[in-house]
Design a protein around this nucleic acid. Structure first.
Lengths: 156, 156
DNA sequence: GCTGTCGTCATCCTTTCGGATGATTTTACA
DNA sequence: TGTAAAATCATCCGAAAGGATGACGACAGC
């Protein structure tokens, strides 16, 4: 880590030295274009690094070992409900029942072929449903579709 | 590490060479100096930020705090907690922090390429992490990996 | 009868994923 | 300082997924 900074400093110094050298060769030409460019470059390099450091300052991943001691209280109810999808969202997105059914199977990790087998239809059909569902959800991938589906309460 | 310096040197050198070369071609155009300064500034800013990000990339603090948290299970409060992954399952499956990080991004619907961009690594690296994570989770697809991850409390 | 929606299936083509494997670099730790 | 684990990157190849498009039958509603 410190080495990075050191080497960076060295390179920076070298760069400046080079620039200073080249300045003499172009000093005649109106105010040495390179000098200014280099100055700007170095300054903004420093700025960029400072910014980069600032940005990532809060990027520390604090990993706590959490020992969760669960105290069970008898009231357990959510396990029983069979999950009711948000039909409002389903309706105004125009997602059909079949498409939702397939989305469910996607969310459960099945491939198109497996889904086709389970539903007794061809893989092409599954792909068509997928494409339509993805389009309606604005998703480009099945993982994205699942994510959107859960957000909208369409999937458990 | 050496690559950083190399790249820095190359970029710097190239930039200077370009400047020296193009100076003659654009010296006539008025305001070219400001344009150039801006260009250099932007380029080096970007580079500096990139370097800053790279340097501080793995700032991970493993704070081995053992928090004994008594949880009343059915009490419905999930909105506030920032989600702590089930480290027990993670450990005995041998899933690394990086792999979990990538699993998270997969669950959020990103493609490998998008993940690579976000994490400043190559797509190949992402794929490697994926493959390992899938293997450890016994998943064949990313959707399946996500499903398993949620089951095991590794993903929110 | 006509129309619109839905479900079904297909083909062609491109992109993305995933598996297998090997290598190098970084980091952590004894 | 040496070693083991993680992380990084690459290449090859096959499988899966996705986009675009066209088609056909069933069925409901007008």
């Amino acid at each position: 880590m410190k080495r990075h900074v050191l080497i960076f400093g060295l390179v920076g110094g070298l760069l400046i030295a080079t620039l200073q050298y080249t300045e003499y060769r172009f000093a005649i030409i109106e105010h040495s274009f390179e000098l200014y460019s280099a100055l700007v470059a170095v300054l903004f390099s420093a700025f960029g690094i400072w910014l980069g450091l600032r940005i990532t300052r809060n990027r520390e991943i604090i990993r706590e070992t959490v020992v969760v001691r669960e105290v069970l209280v008898p009231a357990e109810a959510p396990a029983l409900e069979p999950f009711a999808p948000n039909t409002a969202h389903q309706q105004n997105l125009g997602i059909t029942a079949r498409e939702l059914e397939i989305l469910n199977l996607i969310a459960r990790g099945f491939s198109n072929r497996e889904i086709a087998t389970q539903l007794f239809v061809s893989e092409n059909t599954v792909k068509t449903h997928c494409a339509r569902a993805f389009d309606k959800l604005g998703a480009a991938r099945r993982t994205q579709a699942v994510q959107r589906g859960k957000e909208l309460g369409l999937l458990p």
